[in-house]
Amino acid sequence: MEPWQRAEVPGPVKAVLITKPEVVAALIKRAKRPLFVVGTGSLGGNGEKSPLEYVVRIARAGKVPLVATAHAAVELRKRGVQPAARMAMVEICSRLTDPKWSLHGDGQPHDLVLMLGLGPYYMEWLMGSGLKSFAPHLRTISLNRVYQPHCSWSFPNMSEEEWYKNLEKIAEELER
């Protein structure tokens, strides 16, 4: 699988492709201390559906606390969701490399991080690579429409329609 931006070649360790969305739901269910980091790249949509809609459903059903970057929090609140924190992308991701840090402040680190729309593609790419190298205690899942090879798991590059189907499936699995 090629990364979305043409020249972004990652290295030998690449994300496992998410071919079955049920796997993501299972990983969320199995995680002890998951976290969902959502950025402004999640604010788009095709008029009928928005990725943010699925962010909210997945976070609620999976009981995953949300961290919103930049002004993503504004849109979440419009949907009746108050994120657990609003932090800049580099602020949350740098803290995630600390094995003693968690959002709950109890010294127990998070073990799974879901990411969606952390700014432009390359910015999420770099956050993924920072976590890959400096947060060995953490597994990361990119729920973006395009391949993010520095995460532990990522969707392949896909159409918007396919993407929404996959997000729907994850949400449904968790809502069961």
Partner: peptide, 21 residues
Amino acid sequence: FYLPFCDLCCLCTFGKCDLSR
């Protein structure tokens, strides 16, 4: 807070070396 562009170093003939994880 370091953000590797890629996992490799290719500056000398030892390399490419994988520096990830």
